[in-house]
Design a binder for these strands. Structure first.
Lengths: 342, 342
DNA sequence: CTGAAAGCGCTTACAG
DNA sequence: CTGAAAGCGCTTACAG
């Protein structure tokens, strides 16, 4: 830690060293054109020599813009939060904006506290990061600046929400399996309380119906987002429905559990049973045995898209409604053509 | 997004509504005692009615304190960053401080850019979050405010670094296996370039030596931090050294891979071979088959400890050197007593 | 082209 | 107990 805060170099110091007024120094540094080239050179030199960093707070007080965004998350610990946050942070940095991070941890009181703190810090706008792609209450009446909702849909139609397109993701997965000639496709997924789980099921059913195929096992198996559930569900499913030749899983952890169970049951992946995961969580999907074909939600892109819209709103071009970010199928070794009958 | 920035309520508005001067309004709101109770009541009422949020920037300009900390990460996407960040964020919020998040993504240029941005935003201090518990260059000459280094040791002894105690973690793991009667303990870990990997090996060797035991296989197997490496290494190791009765793994992914391979080779976990992981990464450790005994680095605590020291520095009580955060052994089903000979 | 002055929203001596 | 005034660091009309 060593050093204590030393006296900060201010524009006054730069002006004095350059032998000009602060007004002129300001203009020179901000590249306004009413400054003589020679004067500007002296000012820039002085600023350089003193390692001058303009005080953004003071500027913010004048301009009313702090170039700071509040990022309010429901649950930062959730696996999806980080890639989205990376996208947000990246896009903001490109626009020379900074991020104030506040994690509500699913606590309403805490969220309220953070909203106040962010407003008091004069953020130019909010990115509100949800935890489940579900509908959530709008903050529109509480915050005086533009906001964009990501991975969680605001219940106020005046707001803009940027969501993962689960209908699209499930369609990609199902069409892939159908195109491989799979005819007995089952579905193991997380809790039915998740809109994401239900949306994917709806899309899966639609694709199967239009291909004239049944949902193997009759109903999707709703459970948990865990390997363990994947293992258990696969055992139940395959003992009751040995004819199954493909399993579309609600996430990669479930898929990893399914893959393990299938192999333990002596069935081959992908020949006998093809498996598709969801999320493209690298540590589970790419490192699975065999590596998983899966759906990538393009989460980082989701964050970048949100910021793009927020920037537009800050420039006076707000949008509203729902933007759905397309998904991407990542094909690996857990899917393939059906084994030839011996 | 709907609404544009509306005119902000300022202290002047509150003062006017309460019928007092801004000076008096300020004192009333800040609970200074030179204000008549009745006056204070009126001011508070007016502030409430107008939903007044004091402008933290303006206050910061006066006091020189922004109550904002810069959190500079090397690589936010790394698995360790999030728990530490949660700890930091939590501890800061308790102190009414906000966090400006900047992720350098391993890019020196980007890091430099962010350092400037944070200084320009007048942060009161820095938390510098490393990506590997390794030694890293100090920022002491670049930043004019206190800084604390977490999960990465500053190379300047005047700085304070808060580190995971890998010597302790590896000791806990090894002593656990020894106490279970294991006599042929092997080690599969990540790249030797990681100080964390080397520190754990050194500690493992020390405990084994003092117990009069060999390191099974002679040398640790350095590789990658992946399941795949765990699987491959376990196969090699067990075919060359069938007498092995325990494997201490450098992380939980390796351990999960090892567990899978051991079971495929027809050996029982934990009876024939006990396995210890490292990190207590819930999705891998708790959900493994069987659930993994592992070392928890107390990462959230690491972040909180760092903030505690940063607060002390901000209060004029800086510390320096290295603080090592103790680890914690989490015992699950992958370790147990040796199987009785049949 | 340059600089004195006003002002962003707030706090803090200081005078009354 | 209350309020006028100065000032934090900067930017921006405005006058010269």
């Amino acid at each position: 830690m060593g050093r204590q805060r030393s006296r900060t170099v201010t524009l006054t110091d730069v002006a004095r060293l350059a032998g000009v007024s602060v007004a002129t120094a300001s203009k020179a540094l901000n590249a306004r054109d009413e400054v003589a080239p020679e004067t500007r050179r002296r000012v820039l030199e002085a600023a350089e020599e003193l390692s001058f960093q303009p005080n953004v707070l003071a500027r913010g007080l004048l301009t009313g813009r702090t170039r700071t965004i509040g990022l309010l998350t429901d649950e930062l610990a959730h696996r999806f939060s980080i890639p989205i946050l990376l996208g947000v942070e990246n896009a903001l940095a490109n626009g020379q904006m900074s991020v104030l991070l506040c994690d509500a941890r699913g606590d309403a009181i805490r969220r309220q506290h953070y909203i106040r703190a962010l407003i008091a810090r004069q953020v130019d706008g909010f990115v509100v990061l949800g935890d489940s792609n579900d509908v959530r209450p709008s903050l529109i009446r509480q915050i005086p600046v533009p906001a964009v909702y990501v991975y969680g849909e605001s219940d106020d139609p005046r707001d803009l929400s940027v969501l993962a397109d689960d209908e699209h993701g499930a369609r990609l997965a199902t069409e892939h399996l159908v195109s491989l000639g799979r005819r007995q496709i089952a579905h193991i997924t997380g809790p039915q309380s998740y809109r994401a789980a239900r949306d994917r099921v709806a899309s899966l059913r639609k694709v199967l119906a239009s291909a004239g195929l049944p949902l193997a096992g009759g109903e999707p198996l709703y459970g948990e987002w865990s390997q363990r559930w994947g293992r258990n569900a696969a055992r139940m499913l395959l003992s009751a429905n040995p004819e199954i030749d493909a399993i579309f899983c609600g996430n990669d952890q479930i898929a990893a559990g399914v893959a393990g169970a299938v192999r333990e049951l002596g069935r081959r992946v992908p020949d006998d049973i093809s498996i598709v995961g969801y999320d493209n969580w690298h540590e589970f999907a790419a490192d699975c045995q065999p590596p998983l074909t899966t759906v990538d939600l393009n989460l980082q892109q989701l964050g970048e898209t949100a910021v793009k819209h927020l920037f537009a709103a800050l420039d006076g071009q707000p949008s509203s409604g729902v933007v759905r970010q397309p998904c991407r199928l990542v094909v690996r070794d857990s899917t393939g053509p059906r084994a030839q009958p011996a």
